[in-house]
């Protein structure tokens, strides 16, 4: 088990070098002038220096492999560079934005996974009956609605008309409280920090801001999980060992919960794992629609402005996350399926 984990972690640097190299190659397709454009905020800055001066200043005249080595050298010193688009060091930008994304992912994953499994179970139990068609149609509509459309509808109804679920992460008054020195930021997640600081009012405000993006994400993903759960349940229902369970004289409820559902959950767990990964990587569109300042929005803004230090930093971070979460999913896989051996 431990050797398995160690061996998997040995791959981590390989993956990270691979992904950053890829980003660097893509970046080297851009001319130094394009790359330097991100540093120029206004035409005023070009009065005293030429573009070539700036290119030289930021080392963009050097060949790509030299720049990559320099970047690597800094990386080993723990320096990811300065992000112009976020106006702060890349490391700090990630550290600030990632908790917001974790928070959204944590709040989304429960309704997404359990809702999807629940709908899938209903569908499978009522295979080809009206309830099955109903839950599938409901889920497919969510899948087909683009998230920026559904998100905007939610925003229109629940913010514009009803005023219940505002965009952003906190209301103005709560934001002011959070930014004061008395409010300790333990985790960077507003809901957790507010409770630790004994401020239920801020907790409630944070939750209000989370509900709409969570609903958008949940409705988007339900169809996917429903389909996996449904087909997996239907497959397991016809397995011989389910017939064996009936032969034992178990009640239908025990057969369904202990034998069918437990076995049907194996593929569902795999899919859920990659879904969590997707959520943690940031959901650009949902974060944009709801002006939710997570890592997805950060990366998207950086990409738009050719802020390559930021992009490299987030790529590195996301690559690391990918390897680690996949490892966790594989470990969990061995827990739920005894046939899987980690070697």
């Amino acid at each position: 088990m431990l050797t398995y984990i160690a061996r998997r972690l040995l791959f981590l640097p390989v993956v990270l070098i691979g992904v950053t190299l890829l980003v660097f190659v893509a970046m080297s397709l851009l001319s130094p002038y394009q790359l330097v454009s991100t540093y120029i905020k206004s035409p005023e800055e070009l009065k005293n220096q030429s573009l070539d001066d700036l290119v030289r200043k930021y080392g963009l005249d050097q060949p790509a492999h030299v720049r990559y080595m320099n970047w690597m050298k800094n990386l080993f010193r723990g320096d990811l560079g300065y992000s112009v688009s976020a106006s702060m060091p890349v490391k700090e930008a990630i550290a600030r934005r990632f908790p917001a994304t974790i928070e959204l992912a944590l709040f989304a994953v429960i309704p997404v996974v359990f809702g999807g499994i629940w709908l899938g179970t209903i569908s499978a139990k009522n295979y080809n009956k009206p309830l099955d068609h109903l839950s599938r149609t409901f889920a497919i509509i969510g899948w087909s609605l683009p998230d920026f459309v559904f998100g905007l509808i939610l925003l229109m109804v629940f913010y514009g008309v009803l005023g219940w679920f505002p965009p952003g992460r906190l209301s103005m008054w709560a934001d002011t409280v959070v930014l004061t020195g008395d409010f300790v930021r333990y985790t960077g997640m507003n809901t957790v920090d507010s409770l630790l600081n004994g401020r239920p009012d801020i907790f409630w405000d944070a939750v209000r801001h989370l509900i709409a993006p969570v609903i958008t994400l949940a409705y988007l993903w339900w169809a996917y999980l429903l389909r996996i759960t449904r087909s997996s349940m239907l497959e397991v229902m016809n397995k011989d060992y389910v017939r064996t369970a009936r032969a034992k004289g178990l009640t239908e409820k025990v057969v369904a919960n202990r034998h069918i559902r437990r076995n049907a959950m194996i593929p569902v767990a795999t899919v859920s794992g990659s879904m969590v990964l997707g959520l943690l990587g940031g959901v650009v569109i949902v974060e944009t629609v709801f002006d939710y300042k997570g890592i997805g929005l950060l990366t998207a803004t950086g990409a738009q402005q050719l802020d390559y230090t930021l992009i490299l930093g987030t790529t590195l971070f996301y690559g690391m996350l990918l390897v680690l979460i996949n490892l966790v999913v594989d470990l969990l896989y061995a827990v739920i399926d005894p046939r899987v051996r980690l070697e």
Binding site: K239, D240, Y241, R243, T244, A247, R262, N263, P338, R339
Partner: peptide
């Protein structure tokens, strides 16, 4: 009354 099934590979719950 009990039954012994044909396929011993698929008739035992793998979990």
């Amino acid at each position: 009354m009990q039954i012994v099934f044909q396929d011993p590979f698929s008739s035992l719950d793998p979990r």
